[in-house]
């Protein structure tokens, strides 16, 4: 096991992502952050509060559970469904930033796009990921990446966040193949 991101690394990465989001969207006025549970939801919260601090305004932030939209439900054990919380103003004509911890095959994001499509029609949908570990199976690309982590398929990336795990850390487990 090797540590890829330490707590300060994570903090810096999120701060950078927050700035990039503001830059790309020319401010925070139309932004809605939607975190994908479980850890993506906490990352979205953190980014929202960083942006609020920078801009001095409240940022719309919610969660988007994708469990019911997965395409592999027939194969996998059913997961408990996590809450989906859309800010009261909705997503119509907003710039939605999906936030997840690890970008891997891209299937989660495809499911998230399907889920989002049922909720409304944002002006744009962008993607922020703390870690991009490669091995995409779909034509999906992140707009904001905390760190690119080249991994082998047999390895796994473990993200710890203080809200759930008591500390912040990203590590790679298993041998590079």
């Amino acid at each position: 096991m090797s540590v890829a991101l330490s707590a300060p690394d994570i903090k810096r990465a999120l701060t950078r992502i927050s700035h990039e989001i503001l830059e790309k969207n020319q401010g925070a006025s139309s932004i809605v952050l939607l975190g994908i549970p479980t850890r993506g939801a906490h990352l979205a919260q953190r980014i929202a509060s960083i942006i609020s601090e920078i801009e001095g305004v409240e940022i719309s932030c919610g969660t988007l559970d994708i469990t019911l939209f997965r395409d592999d439900l027939r194969l996998r054990a059913p997961k408990a469904i996590m809450p989906t919380t859309i800010p009261p103003s909705g997503v119509e004509n907003c710039d939605v930033i999906l936030v997840d911890d690890v970008l891997f095959s891209g299937r989660t994001i495809r499911s998230a796009l399907d889920a989002l499509g049922e909720i409304g029609r944002p002006r744009t949908v962008q993607l922020a990921a703390l870690v991009d570990r490669g091995h995409r199976e779909l034509p999906i690309k992140a707009d904001f990446v905390g760190k690119n982590l080249p991994t082998s398929k047999s390895q796994s990336v473990r993200v710890l966040l203080s809200e759930i795990d008591g500390r912040d850390e990203v590590s790679i487990e298993g041998e590079a193949g």
Binding site: P37, T38, R39, L68, L73, R74, L75, R76, A77, P78, K79, A80, I81, M82
Partner: peptide, 15 residues
């Protein structure tokens, strides 16, 4: 129907 028709046993919590 969700619990019966998706995969095996219900997992508790997150991913």
């Amino acid at each position: 129907l969700y619990v019966l028709l998706t995969g095996g046993a219900l997992e508790a919590g997150g991913n």
